[in-house]
Amino acid sequence: MEAVLWQVLAGTRGGPNRARILKSLDDRPRNANQLAEELGLAYQTIRHHLDVLEDNDVLKSTDEEYGTIYLPSDRTRQHWETVETIIEQVDIQ
């Protein structure tokens, strides 16, 4: 899981935005619209990053179609020290 976290949060151009999303979701679960507003990113950009994070089991979501809520997965929580290390090293302005 550590390799996955490094890859999706630091190994690609979109990594810093994914790190910002994950940090925001650590505070409290949110939906894509709330994340877009909070982070100042386009809704479609947020959706793309949420899909990448969910496909890699970094996030989990409710099964609702509208207003789906996202939060860190249990696997991510087990490796939260790695997430914090990555967030410290990635420029997430």
Score class of each variant (00 low, 15 high):
E54G: 01
T68Q: 07
D63T: 03
Q78H: 13
D74A: 09
E65Y: 09
T45Q: 13
R75M: 12
I69S: 10
D51Y: 05
W80H: 04
D63H: 03
T76H: 06
E64K: 09
D57G: 12
T82L: 11
T85F: 08
T76K: 06
V83R: 00
E81L: 10
T76M: 05
N56P: 07
Q89W: 06
E65A: 11
T45Y: 10
I69C: 05
E64R: 10
V52A: 04
E64I: 05
D74E: 11
I69Y: 06
I69T: 13
E88I: 03
Q89T: 07
T76I: 06
D63P: 03
D74K: 05
H48E: 05
T62M: 04
N56Y: 06
L59P: 02
K60T: 11
I69M: 13
E84T: 10
L53V: 05
H48C: 03
I46V: 15
R77M: 14
T62L: 03
E54W: 00
Y70R: 10
Y70V: 08
V83L: 00
V58K: 14
D51S: 11
T82Q: 12
T45G: 11
V90Q: 12
E64C: 03
R77N: 11
L53G: 03
W80M: 09
T82W: 08
Q78V: 14
L50R: 02
R75W: 14
I46E: 01
D74M: 03
L53A: 05
I46G: 02
I69H: 07
E54S: 06
Y66G: 04
E84F: 04
T76V: 08
T68P: 01
V52D: 02
G67I: 07
T45A: 13
D63G: 11
I46C: 03
T76P: 05
E88K: 14
D57R: 15
E54I: 00
V52N: 01
D91F: 06
L50S: 05
Q78K: 14
V52E: 04
V58L: 12
D57F: 15
D57T: 14
S73Q: 07
V90I: 15
V58M: 11
T85H: 09
K60N: 04
I86G: 01
V90G: 11
L71E: 14
P72Q: 01
D55T: 00
I69W: 06
E84D: 10
T82I: 15
E64V: 09
Q78S: 15
V58R: 13
T45P: 05
L50Q: 04
Q78E: 15
I46L: 03
T62K: 06
I86P: 00
E88S: 13
E84M: 09
E54K: 03
T45E: 11
R77T: 12
V90L: 13
T68K: 05
H79Q: 14
Y66L: 09
I86Y: 02
V58N: 12
R47G: 04
L71R: 12
V58I: 14
D55I: 00
V58Y: 14
E64A: 12
L50F: 06
D74F: 02
V52S: 02
N56M: 08
H49A: 09
Q89Y: 08
T82D: 10
